[in-house]
């Protein structure tokens, strides 16, 4: 008798558990983030300059700063973020299951991810491409000379496909070595287990600058394998959340275009320029339309910086990577960064 009651209770418990899960997933992302008091951001965690914790456990890097941009927009405080290190294989299930609110992990925007995985993407935060790095002593000058080479590739990435396509297009063969843990993969390449390591260009630059014993022993080949437009990824179906993340990214472009930096933005609050007044929330309440404080752009620029500051500090001339901005310049400087008007 007692056992039957217990089982009935168990069944009821399972019902309410399942129902509860369905209800909790329904709330808009912003409400959940505000209630929690911090943003949950998925990152790589192994790439200095892009995404990695420092000696004190403080996360930093290009990808990390874009999470901080979103946190600054919501809370006016870029430290209200918790970071979770995810491998390429873990990242999508983690986002789908709701463990994280945004994924800022050098993730390429492509059709399958957009349409079939249930994701949406922010504006492109970095225009990159798949590239190949080889050991210099091989004396290789171009990718098509790599017939029969062993190639270290991260699994579950667009890179894995780009590699298959590239070797097929050149009608040559290769052996992939596929390891989920990026650090282990890099070490496998550095130990000469692979002749080539494939990754997006800034990723290769990090391995060379931070992990290689002698950076000059490694050459990044000039081949451009495939476009890799990297963007912040989040779950589809929350229109407000898409707007918040997208306009937070645009704010970094727009701030650079208007010459606003973390240093001068306080002074700019008194600017007579109506566009700057609107942008910083002095005269308009653009932020409130997104469900954010009206000075969200001010908070982003003041606490994190504009796009140029984020780039130079993490991967550009102020960082060991010294990457050229290339396409990642404003449209008026010959790049492709272009924000719709803040009106």
């Amino acid at each position: 008798m007692k056992a039957a009651t217990f089982l009935a209770a168990l069944a009821l418990g399972a019902v309410s558990l399942a129902a509860g899960a369905a209800v909790a997933a329904d709330g808009p992302t912003l409400a959940a983030v505000k209630q929690r008091g911090h943003l949950m951001c998925g990152g790589d965690g192994t790439r200095p300059g892009i995404s990695a914790p420092d000696a004190k456990g403080e996360w930093g890097g290009f990808d990390v700063d874009f999470c901080r941009v979103v946190a600054a927009a919501i809370f006016g405080d870029p430290t209200k973020v918790r970071f979770i290190a995810l491998t390429t294989v873990q990242r999508f299930p983690s986002l789908q299951s709701g463990e994280i609110d945004v994924l800022s992990r050098s993730t390429t925007h492509n059709l399958t991810r957009d349409a079939a995985l249930g994701f949406d993407f922010s504006p492109i935060t970095m225009y990159a491409h798949t590239a190949l790095m080889v050991h210099k002593d091989l004396g290789v000058k171009a990718g098509k000379e790599l017939d029969g080479a062993s190639v270290c590739v991260p699994p579950g990435t667009s890179i894995e496909r780009n590699i298959a396509d590239f070797w097929q297009q050149n009608n040559i063969k290769y052996k992939p070595v596929v390891i989920d843990n990026q650090k282990e993969l890099n070490e496998t390449y550095l130990a000469h287990r692979c002749d080539v390591i494939a990754n997006f260009l800034p990723g290769l630059a990090t391995i060379r600058a931070y992990q290689a014993a002698k950076p000059e022993d490694h050459v990044i080949l000039p081949d451009v394998l495939l476009k890799e437009p990297l963007a912040i990824t989040f779950r589809q179906g929350d229109a407000q959340w898409k707007d918040i993340v997208s306009w937070s990214v645009y704010a970094t472009f727009e701030a650079e275009e208007k010459g606003l930096t973390s240093k001068n933005v306080d002074a700019a609050l008194k600017s007579k320029d109506p566009e700057i007044q609107r942008l910083l929330g002095v005269t308009a309440d653009l932020g409130e339309k997104l469900g954010l404080p009206k000075d969200f752009v001010y908070q982003i620029v003041k606490k994190v910086g504009n796009y140029e500051e984020i780039w130079e500090k993490n991967v550009g001339k102020d960082a060991p990577l010294k990457l050229d901005r290339g396409l990642n310049k404003l449209w008026r400087d010959g790049g492709v960064l272009y924000s719709p008007p803040f009106q």
Binding site: V89, F92, R113, A116, L117, P155, G156, T157, D180
Partner: peptide
């Protein structure tokens, strides 16, 4: 597991 993990990632069919 390794091969299926990649498939899960490419297709999202976790």
């Amino acid at each position: 597991v390794s091969v299926t993990n990649t498939a899960i990632n490419q297709t999202g069919q976790a």
